[in-house]
């Protein structure tokens, strides 16, 4: 990947001496400190971010993404446009070489991902976003790991939002269907009571009906005042519920506007929404 000799297993796939399941891919980063910054125009903003993985080439080029409380911001774009990368940059999973990430009036560019969790950012990865061997309830408990107070209220809220999870709470999360897994994943992230929720393709691999339902739930979460930043493959549906849309092309902002504006923009329609 990055030419690190320690990351070369020379084709050894012997599972009787090594366990590959669940190996972490988030690169290790020594976190710096958050510094107070001038209150920007948005609650969370990744401002003119340029960067890439490790010592690799830049993937993002002066990309800007922002979201405010009560809003849903959606990042769309063609394959390989750097949508997920932009989200990961906001979460500190790659090196932002220039530009800043500001959260609630603080510059958090130097923070490690785990410190950002403590600052109140919730992240739902696209894949491997649940603990498959743990029960649904244990998944939610792990979501609340950083909380030392009583989180039963939050858990009840999550169960209200996703009633099916309450029914299956003692079942191993790995036994659930695709849509239910996504609900567990979102529920886990909500357990920290995040100040901002980031979803990486929450509807990847679920049926259209389940997708509509998930979008409804996401709107419900946004109504409670939590800003939501979301990467979506299904551009049209996503832009329909978006307050703000970002179209990325090759790691750059190509179009920015409200969801409605983008849907009506002939250029965007022609190139991304299929006419």
């Amino acid at each position: 990947m990055s030419g690190n000799p320690y990351q070369d297993d020379r084709g050894n796939k012997d599972a009787s001496i090594t366990k590959r399941h669940g190996v972490g891919e988030i690169p290790y980063r020594k976190g710096g400190k958050a510094t107070p910054a001038a209150k920007g125009e948005a609650f969370l903003i990744g401002d003119t971010m340029t960067g890439g993985y490790g010592t690799g080439p830049d993937i993002l080029h002066e990309c800007t993404i922002a979201v405010n409380p009560g809003e849903i911001a959606v990042i769309v774009g063609p394959n390989g446009a750097g949508k997920s990368t932009a989200m990961k940059a906001v979460f500190g999973m790659l090196d932002v070489r220039s530009g800043h990430v500001l959260l609630d009036g603080e510059d958090i560019t130097a923070l490690s991902p785990q410190d950002r969790v403590i600052k109140g950012m919730g992240f739902v990865p696209q894949t491997n976003n649940i603990f498959t061997s743990l029960t649904v309830e244990e998944n939610l408990e792990m979501g609340a790991f950083i909380r030392r107070d009583d989180f039963r209220g939050t858990m009840a809220q999550v169960y209200d939002l996703f009633p099916i999870l309450k029914e299956k709470r003692n079942q191993a999360a790995g036994e659930l269907s695709g849509g239910q897994r996504q609900q567990v994943a979102v529920g886990r992230a909500l357990m920290t009571r995040p100040k901002v929720l980031m979803l990486d393709e929450p509807t990847a691999g679920v049926s259209p009906i389940v997708m509509d339902e998930l979008f409804d739930r996401i709107i419900e979460v946004a109504r409670t005042g939590i800003p939501i930043l979301m990467v979506e493959q299904n551009a049209r549906q996503a832009l329909e519920i978006a307050d703000k849309g970002y179209v990325l092309v090759q790691g750059r902002n190509a179009f920015t506007g409200t969801g409605k504006e983008l849907l009506e923009d002939p250029e965007v329609r022609k190139s991304f929404l299929g006419g």
């Binding site: 669940g22 603990f131 790991f145």
Partner: peptide
Amino acid sequence: SDNEDLALLSG
């Protein structure tokens, strides 16, 4: 043990 990255993301 189940998922290193998600554990990290859960704090």
